[in-house]
């Protein structure tokens, strides 16, 4: 029980939000995934998912590419190097907190 309280405060809140954590976790396991897949896996509404993706993109954690598959618009998301690093740090922080409480 030698938890440094500052470590808890240092947890990345942008990633810690459950919906965004789910998005980041999914993207960490793949090279890229489209909007439909993310929506199905997270169970979020289109608007909600869109809002979370925008926040993650603004933080530089994910890259969003808008293309077309035939005539259907396709939004493909992938984790950036910054996002991958931030996610790894987040996991390490969580592990530290769990192990020291």
């Amino acid at each position: 029980m030698n938890l440094d309280p500052r470590k808890v405060a240092e947890v990345d809140r942008l990633i810690h939000e459950p919906a965004r954590l789910m998005i980041i976790t999914i993207l960490s396991a793949v090279k890229s995934a489209d909007f439909l897949f993310l929506q199905r896996e997270t169970g979020l509404t289109k608007g909600n998912l869109s809002s979370h993706l925008s926040k993650l993109e603004a933080a530089g954690y994910i890259k969003i590419q808008k293309t077309y598959r035939g005539k259907i618009p396709l939004t493909v998301c992938s984790l950036s190097n910054t996002g991958r690093k931030a996610f790894q740090e987040y996991r390490d922080q969580l592990k530290y907190i769990v192990e020291n409480t």
């Binding site: 793949v30 090279k31 890229s32 909007f35 897949f37 896996e41 598959r69 493909v76």
Partner: peptide
Amino acid sequence: ARLTFPRTGYVSYNR
């Protein structure tokens, strides 16, 4: 590309 991705979404895996 024809059956799966239009139904449940596109995913590309890391090599």
